[in-house]
């Protein structure tokens, strides 16, 4: 009997402890949860709702005041406009758009080319180079590489537009013509090159910083030992550095993929999705164009929201794939020493 009581008491203590642990965990997580709820979940729910309405310039009103809510809204003095619930018709229209595959293809091309060649590729090269030269020089070089990131987007793109301006203008033309090249409208001849370079130069700085600090934190003993064993620099990079910075590499790949999926401001300012037929139009830019930017200003917020919501779904799918393929659960596993 006593043993049973003792067992129950221990169980209760264990339960209380488990509760306390959970509560502690939640209290630590709560600031992040509040932020995620406020700035992700609520906007996504609103986005989904708006995408199910015909909200546009000529139906403008409060998108929550549709159907049976109209009278209630009117009684509160809220402007209801002519906005109506239209179900999935915006999605039907989106998938029936003949440029939907092209825009999706452009998006994937833009994201992965920029990611592979710049945001991860060049970032890794820069990190390796700047950590293998004299420390101060490396620091200075990284600081210089950060300049595009701290330059306002509009000014940064204006510089690139002047560099690539149509003949007879353009800094590029001024340099190349004396060398015997034909002056060209570079931005229109090779729009993707400039879209990827402008995004990539800025994007590479993020990975460069993360990788540099990861490389710097590798114990010097490993490198020394490898050198003593006669390993070449390339061998050291391949067999020591890359495996030891695996997690930063995976994190940057994941983060930058999602970031590129949603980014469009440089493309908007540089090519606005052109030239020609949607040549550099990406998904997020289409959502922006539909919802907020047409020449004559008929904003179709409902339809634009449908494009936006599909992008959220694409982003979530990519996140799940990365979590699974890169096995991020191993990164967040409890330390084995504590598990014992």
């Amino acid at each position: 009997m006593e043993a049973v009581v003792q067992e129950q008491a221990m169980e209760m203590v264990a339960r209380r402890r488990s509760w306390r642990v959970s509560l502690e965990a939640f209290s630590f997580m709560s600031p992040a949860m509040v932020l995620v709820t406020l700035f992700f979940f609520i906007p996504v729910v609103l986005l989904l709702w708006i995408s199910l309405t015909n909200l546009s310039s000529n139906t403008f009103g409060n998108p929550l005041c549709v159907g049976g809510m109209r009278d209630f809204c009117e009684s509160l003095g809220i402007r209801v406009g002519r906005v109506e619930f239209v179900g999935v018709s915006n999605y039907r229209r989106l998938f029936a758009d003949r440029f939907f595959p092209k825009i999706l293809g452009n998006t994937l091309f833009y994201v992965f080319t920029t990611l592979i060649f710049f945001n991860v590729g060049l970032a890794l090269i820069l990190a390796l180079l700047t950590t293998h030269i004299e420390r101060r020089t490396g620091f200075l070089f990284r600081a210089i590489w950060l300049l595009p990131r701290i330059t306002p987007s509009v000014i940064y793109i204006m510089m690139w537009k002047r560099i690539s301006a149509d003949a007879p203008y353009g800094i590029l033309n001024q340099f190349l013509v004396p060398l015997g090249f034909e002056p060209k409208a570079w931005l229109k001849e090779a729009p993707w090159l400039f879209v990827i370079i402008t995004n990539g130069f800025v994007g590479a700085s993020f990975g460069m910083l993360i990788f540099s600090s990861a490389i710097e934190s590798i114990p010097r003993d490993y490198i020394m030992a490898a050198k003593v064993d006669g390993a070449s620099t390339l061998q050291i990079i391949r067999t020591i550095i890359i495996p030891l910075i695996k997690w930063p590499l995976l994190f940057v790949t994941t983060y930058q993929t999602l970031s590129l999926l949603a980014s469009f401001e440089y493309i908007l300012l540089l090519t606005n999705g052109g030239p020609g037929l949607y040549r550099t139009e990406v998904w997020s830019l289409t959502a922006y164009h539909r919802a907020l930017q047409t020449y004559f200003g008929n904003n179709q917020w409902g339809y634009g929201a449908a494009w936006g919501f599909v992008l959220v779904v694409i982003g979530i799918i990519f996140s799940l794939i990365y979590l699974r393929v890169f096995r991020f659960d191993e990164l967040v596993q409890e330390p084995k020493i504590d598990a014992l």
């Binding site: 310039s57 020609g276 040549r279 047409t294 020449y295 004559f296 008929n298 179709q300």
Partner: peptide, 23 residues
């Protein structure tokens, strides 16, 4: 007309595509 903006965007899309030689 409430539909002018969409009409104009589609029409202009065709102009862009023939001038660039895409279509």
């Amino acid at each position: 007309s409430p539909y002018w903006s969409q009409w104009s965007e589609a029409y202009f899309l065709g102009i862009q595509s023939v001038e660039s030689g895409d279509l």
